[in-house]
Design a protein around this nucleic acid. Structure first.
Length: 106
DNA sequence: GGGGTGACGCGTC
DNA sequence: CGACGCGCCACCC
């Protein structure tokens, strides 16, 4: 059985371009909705930001991380908009851009 | 091994 | 989606 971290990275990698996922979403897919905190830490230590689009992961309000230290909070917003996801005041419209995983994705 | 911390979520006020 | 508290797991000292 894989470690929780590997599951998290695996899931984040599967986030389709043009969509975003919440920490809780990733945690749930990882096998435990209470792992949201670990998800945050997992992305914090993001071993491969080149393959793991951590910027597509936001909190359940669609709000970007206030401590996004990848070069500033604005950095994440820029990347999201580059994916075609409009960001308003650091918030993404989850009702429209939240990733909805299908059975086909698994 | 014990204690504190954290890119969070949910219930409750 | 205003604020506060508890819980969860992993990591650092």
């Amino acid at each position: 059985m894989e470690n929780t971290f590997e599951k998290i990275y695996e899931i984040v990698r599967r986030i389709p371009k043009g969509t975003v996922a919440t920490y809780g979403q990733v945690a749930l897919l990882a096998g435990n909705p209470r792992l949201a905190r670990v998800v945050g830490y997992a992305l914090h230590v993001n071993p491969d930001p080149d393959s793991i689009p951590c910027y597509r992961v936001v909190n359940r309000f669609g709000r970007v991380s206030p401590a996004f230290a990848f070069g500033g909070e604005n950095r994440q917003i820029t990347l999201l908009e580059a994916d075609g996801i409009p960001v308003t005041d650091g918030c993404v419209d989850l009702t429209r851009y939240q990733w909805q995983p299908e059975i086909s994705d698994f």
